[in-house]
Amino acid sequence: ILPPVEVKPGEHRLQYTYCIWFSRRAPGKQATTQNYDQNLQLIGRFASVEQFWGFYSYLARPTHLASHSDIHIFKDGIKPMWEDGANKNGGKWIVRLRKGLSSRCWENMILAMLGEQFLVGDEICGAVISVRFQEDIISVWNRTAQDTLTTGRIRDTLKRVLNLPPNTVMEYKTHNDSLKQCTS
């Protein structure tokens, strides 16, 4: 447990404190829970709009990241792993983007999350941008995969804020299914 992040006078406090994580996997190497955990690096924590921009301005844009890199922005106290208590009954919306679109979409995604535009209470756990060889993937994780009202609302907000081309495919996957797929 880390100490609370201090918000100085004049700064604009966010609804939640967030952590920025980075991970990179050697291409071709099988992902396991253990090496995934070992590859996760905590980059920083922020609790205000100003602190967010302080980090974000120095963070590489998805376009400039090497393949198999992931940036995770999760609420403080939630590790970006399926096994975390906040995630284990949850799932994620997956949006696959062609190269060149992701930097703008990722920024819009984060701003919507930090600004509480999803209107789903505590349901959002965090968001990930995954840079892959031929595409980039944005995913939004929520706590309760079974809550179709919430997952529907997240999908609708995502569509609106990402301003996606009409043919963009969106897919929902429960972490339980991801876990089963990984261990089978």
Binding site: Q15, E50, W53, G54, L114, E116
Partner: peptide, 21 residues
Amino acid sequence: GTRIIYERNFLLQMRNSPLAR
């Protein structure tokens, strides 16, 4: 309780704030 909601344009304006070091 009350939620702290920010619009995208407001957040973007804050990008150049001197406090965003």
